[in-house]
Design a protein around this nucleic acid. Structure first.
Length: 111
DNA sequence: AAATTGACTCAAC
DNA sequence: TGTTGAGCCAATT
C-alpha cells in the first residue's frame, strides 16, 4: 500500500512541470532512474487522463507532440500548449530548448 | 497465464 | 549514414 509504483512516480514528476514549460518522456524516466522506460512514461500519461496531470506538457525528446492523438479532438494538446504561450508548428514546439524543463536539474534527486 | 504492445530512447551494426 | 533491436513496467488480449 505505501508502495509507490512507477506510474505514481511519473505522475508526481509530471505534476511539477511548471506552467508554460515542457519536458520529455525520457527526461522523466531518467530522473526516476529508469532511463530506458520512456515508453512507460507515455503509457502512464495515457492512464493519467482522469488525474490532475498536465499530460500535454510531456512531449518527445525533440519537442514533437507525439501523443496528440490520445487527446480528445485533433488539436487539443496543441491548443493547451498554446494557451500557455508555447508555439507549435506542424506538431513541433518552437524554441523547444527554451521551454524545456529538466526534472533532473530542477528537482531534488530521488533517494 | 503467457504473450504482446505502447504517447520512447539510445547504442550498436 | 540509416536502420535495427533491446530495454523498461503495466495493461490488454
Amino acid at each position: 500500500m505505501g508502495e509507490k509504483n512507477f506510474f505514481d512516480k511519473v505522475y508526481e514528476v509530471a505534476q511539477q512541470i511548471p506552467y508554460g514549460r515542457v519536458t520529455s518522456y525520457g527526461a522523466i524516466a531518467k530522473y526516476l532512474g529508469a532511463a530506458r522506460s520512456a515508453r512507460m512514461v507515455g503509457w502512464a500519461m495515457n492512464n493519467s487522463l482522469a488525474k490532475d496531470v498536465p499530460a500535454h506538457r510531456v512531449v518527445n525528446r525533440v519537442g514533437l507532440l507525439t501523443g496528440k492523438q490520445h487527446f480528445d479532438g485533433t488539436n487539443l494538446m496543441q491548443q493547451l500548449l498554446e494557451n500557455e504561450g508555447i508555439k507549435v508548428v506542424d506538431n513541433q514546439i518552437m524554441d523547444f530548448q527554451k521551454h524545456f524543463w529538466d526534472p533532473g536539474k530542477e528537482l531534488p534527486s530521488y533517494y
